[in-house]
């Protein structure tokens, strides 16, 4: 039980990480390989602000805003040529461009903040949950993730803007014909996806810590979850995140941390073989 709870907590972080990536992919056709670096950039800004004596909430707010702003900056600058292409050509060019951004950002972040880590693990008391003792930091991180994911789902399902986002994800031209502004909606989705990445910096800072070199691992985690959940599907990313989180926790306990990445990848391959369009199957969002 403790393992499952641990796994769900980790899985919620994975879900938060992957929804940002999958939301942007679904709408813009851009698979952002610098997604992990968005988390790291947010973490570094948060850590520096905390180090300078800023109040915790302000520092974390700054962290989230940084990631959202960095994402939208990427959308309106480097990614511009990408949107002239359609379909697979767009995905390919976006992969190349964001891979370059990931390398450059990684170098810059590691060079600028070699010893900085965002660590919010203030002395947190443990609490009893379902008969198991868990760290309250982990509970808080999970609650943040649940609120953010729930908020995103409500936004997508019930608001006009959410409907516009879903329409663009399904049929870009059809959405334009309905008066949906693709550029504006895309910028909004980059802000949303980037902010979700910023929140991952916060929640990861709560349960462990985020350093300058974490970017690549985070991107890989996000990619695995996104693919298992079905590219572009928010609900799939949430389910896949929690599932892989539990697999990760169980594997880490019974087999050892060395092999957990391998086991995650095997789990991902099995899901993709059985359900090529993602864990929930079918098409669309």
């Amino acid at each position: 039980m403790a393992l499952v709870l641990d796994g769900v907590a980790f899985g919620l972080q994975l879900a938060l990480l992957a929804t940002g990536l999958t939301l942007i992919y679904g709408l813009a056709g851009v698979l952002n390989l610098a997604h992990g670096q968005l988390v790291v950039a947010a973490a570094m800004v948060g850590a520096v602000a905390l180090g300078a004596g800023a109040p915790v909430l302000l520092a974390l707010g700054l962290a989230v805003v940084t990631a959202g702003a960095a994402a939208v900056l990427l959308d309106v600058t480097l990614l511009r040529p990408v949107y002239r292409l359609r379909g697979q050509a767009r995905v390919l060019l976006s992969l190349l461009l964001t891979l370059g951004v990931a390398f450059a950002a990684d170098g810059l972040l590691v060079h600028s903040f070699p010893f900085t880590r965002l660590n919010l693990s203030v002395a947190t008391p443990s609490v009893e949950l379902l008969g198991v003792t868990v760290r309250s930091a982990s509970v808080v991180a999970s609650l943040v993730a649940i609120v953010a994911l729930g908020g995103l789902v409500v936004l997508l399902r019930t608001t006009r803007v959410g409907r516009a986002i879903r329409s663009l994800t399904q049929d870009e031209e059809g959405a334009q014909l309905c008066g949906v502004d693709p550029g504006r909606t895309r910028r909004l989705v980059f802000v949303l996806g980037g902010s979700m990445a910023g929140l991952v910096a916060v929640t990861q800072g709560l349960v462990s810590s985020v350093g300058a070199t974490s970017g690549l691992d985070l991107t890989i985690f996000a990619l695995i979850v996104t693919v298992v959940g079905g590219l572009g599907r928010v609900s799939g990313a949430v389910v896949a995140g929690v599932l892989l989180g539990v697999v990760h926790a169980v594997a880490a306990f019974h087999i050892g941390t060395v092999l957990t990445f391998v086991i995650l990848l095997v789990a991902a391959i099995v899901v993709i073989l059985v359900r090529p369009s993602g864990i929930l199957g079918g098409a669309g969002s």
Binding site: R163, A164, Q170, E173, G174, A175, G179, A283, G284
Partner: peptide
């Protein structure tokens, strides 16, 4: 307002949502 031959509906969304989107925003 243009109605293309391929219709370009949002297949995974309900009929009602498709209609409501017609007047977006």
């Amino acid at each position: 307002v243009y109605v293309p031959a391929e219709r370009r509906l949002f297949g995974a969304m309900t009929v009602r949502e498709n209609l409501v989107l017609g007047a977006h925003p």
